[in-house]
Design a protein around this nucleic acid. Structure first.
Length: 580
RNA sequence: GCGCCCGUAGCUCAACUGGAUAGAGCAACGGCCUUCUAAGCCGUAGGUUGUGAGUUCGAGCCUCGCCGGGCGCGCCA
């Protein structure tokens, strides 16, 4: 007999099905927890699903199934309701048994093996290291971290990865911006380009360079801007000319400035994320793909496969053959590979590392990018279905009912660090995953930082703190937590106690569902429901009653609630204080 | 213009992947602190799920057409 109650009921139905409709004995049995209490603890719709195939009234099929249902010591009664639902009501002790399970399994309760130890890579954030992370990155970070924890908890072997764009033009722009600020410290007046990085952190890096190496990189204003087109007429060309001049004038030293800016910004982002509870196993360098020749090799492979053609001096990938809207350039007229080319190489590298599943977490503005990447993988004979892209919509910050802007280049943005400082890590992590990821997020600053009952994160933490308080007092009165596992659970019969127990029992199902849907918000909503059930019970019934056996049973239930809140909040990266 | 995503209570969002009478929180209104934390609880009110059709035992979810919003359509990343 199956330990899991849901599996147990499915087995009962399967047995009945075998005699009622032998030809359809392999019909998958779906069991759900009805929203309405009067519909019992579990409902099956198998009779309705078979109605067409058997050409019979669903209620009639349901009746036959119920007649053939093997007896079970855990089932109180079975009803047929509605259009043909089979509703199971469990015996009280079958419901409360979960308390012992939770206390026995502790932090492992809810852990699942559906992932089958398969290797999955989750790549997220991957912001250009050209400045501080902002609130948009924060959502990707919170979502990716929670999703990774969730998948690990569901039995996947998870690798968390950050793709470092250390090879492109954006890094060059950051480096030249730093250099120009450095020159400014020596009163070398070069007009700062409007499309350079304006933030104060660039001046900070310039000062660091000066402090460490004095005037080693000092050059004259005239040679810095030599030959550059007018900013007004061609601002991108102007900037590119400044970069080219810098590379010429500095020679080997250019790579020092470049490297310094990169490592500073990367380290800053890393610290920021670690403080946010977001950890990565791998920091993968885009530049390494060029250094190892993988980018060139990929393009070569595509060429050999007949997927490339030359037009206007550039090499194009025929992505339209794989469902893309238009073909895409992989190698420019000037010989440089595009970002797309290195991304193909990156994804091929991912697949070569043997992941069973690869999940990219991208901003929603990249959705048009998916077909070409999948197309390229297909062209390289890879199973592109292993790649799953989770799009995260923008987070819009509201302060006093007004939007806050987020442009990295202008330097006028709210950073993740500012946000964390203002509302705290817990509220941040929780608010970010309180929405479906593909839903726009209105992040209400005033609400997130309010210490009132309007703030949902405290609601759950408060339930946890209440349990801690009860347990503390129970212990001080002579209770021993070690005895809780042996509590007499048959004493738990109050409807609110059974409701809490049912909620606890649903936790593993929530984990499986949330992991399958890549939807950590389901965990957040579950925790709100669990906290609500507990608060409701807490208000209705006293736990530390005089009857010692009863008190022990109730405390055991409360302790199980605390454990599940803790397990769930840990997945979301939110702390659970013992007192508030 | 073409493609993708979205539209659910006054506001912010759920809805077990097609199931029963569409649910929470906030805001509004009315109650509950001499007893384990009132950051809490109990109750009332709030809806033609943008709209019109279609598919079937059954649609917020699937199909198509409109209306409204977001994003994308670079030899940028």
């Amino acid at each position: 007999m199956s330990q899991d109650i849901k599996a147990h009921l499915a087995e009962l139905l399967q047995a009945a099905l075998k005699s009622v409709a032998p030809d359809h004995a392999d019909t998958p049995i779906a069991l759900e927890r009805p929203k309405q209490e009067s519909h019992g603890d579990f409902a099956a719709n198998v009779a309705m699903q078979l109605a067409r195939a058997l050409k019979k009234n669903p209620r009639e099929i349901a009746q036959q199934l119920v007649n053939e249902l093997p007896a079970s010591p855990r089932v109180e009664k079975v009803d047929i309701a509605g259009a043909g639902f089979i509703n199971f009501t469990l015996k009280a002790d079958a419901k409360t048994a979960v308390v012992a399970t939770v206390l026995g399994q502790g932090s492992a309760y809810g852990r699942s093996s559906v992932g089958g130890k398969q290797k999955v890579q989750v790549e997220f954030v991957s912001a250009n290291p050209t400045g501080p992370l902002h609130v948009g990155h924060g959502r990707g970070a919170a979502y990716g971290a929670s999703l990774s924890s969730l998948l690990a908890f569901a039995g996947w072997d998870v690798t968390r990865e950050y793709y470092v764009n250390d090879a492109g033009r954006q890094m060059d722009i950051l480096a030249v911006s730093t250099w120009l600020r450095y020159l400014d410290l020596f009163d070398v007046k070069v007009p700062f380009p409007p499309n350079g990085y304006q933030g104060d952190y660039v001046r900070d890096m310039a000062k660091q360079v000066k402090d460490a190496h004095g005037n080693k990189y000092l050059r004259g204003a005239a040679e810095v801007v030599a030959g550059a087109p007018d900013v007004e007429a061609d601002k991108e060309g102007h900037l590119d000319a400044l970069i080219a001049n810098a590379k010429n004038l500095l020679g080997q030293d250019w790579s020092y400035i470049h490297q310094h800016a990169l490592s500073e910004q990367l380290a800053d982002g890393k610290d920021d994320l670690e403080e946010f509870g977001v950890h990565f196993d791998v920091w993968f360098s885009e530049k390494s793909l060029f250094d190892t020749g993988l980018v060139a090799k990929c393009v070569e492979r595509l060429e050999k496969g007949g997927h490339l053609y030359v037009q206007d001096g550039a090499k194009w990938f025929r992505s339209t053959a794989f469902g893309d809207e238009k073909d895409r350039v992989v190698q420019r007229e000037n010989g440089l590979f595009t970002y797309f080319a290195s991304d193909i190489a990156y994804h091929l590298n991912k697949f070569d590392r043997g992941f069973d599943k690869v999940i990219n977490i991208w901003g929603a503005d990249h959705h048009g990018y998916i077909p070409r990447v999948k197309g390229a993988l297909k062209a390289l004979d890879q199973d592109e279905a292993k790649l799953q892209v989770a799009l995260v919509q923008f987070a819009v910050l509201y302060r006093n009912g007004e939007k806050a802007a987020m442009s990295t280049r202008s330097g006028e943005f709210v950073t993740l660090r500012q946000l964390r400082g203002e509302v705290g890590n817990d509220a941040c992590r929780f608010f970010y995953v309180l929405r479906k990821s593909d839903q726009h997020l209105d992040f209400d600053l005033d609400l997130a930082k309010s210490q009132t009952n309007e703030n949902p994160v405290y609601y759950i933490q408060y339930a946890h703190a209440r349990v801690c308080s009860v347990l503390k007092q129970w212990s001080e009165a002579g209770g021993d937590e070690a005895e809780l596992a042996a509590a007499d659970l048959s004493l738990l019969a109050h409807p609110r106690e059974l409701a809490v127990a049912a909620r606890l029992a649903a936790f593993p199902e929530v984990i499986d569902s949330a992991a399958a849907d890549l939807a950590p918000h389901q965990v957040a909503f579950y925790l709100k429901d669990l906290a609500a059930d507990f608060h409701s019970y807490y208000n209705a019934e006293r736990m530390l009653v005089e009857d010692a056996a009863l008190a022990r049973s109730r405390v055991a239930l409360a302790a199980a609630v605390r454990q599940v809140i803790h397990n769930g909040m840990t997945l979301l990266g939110v702390s659970c204080p013992a007192s508030m």
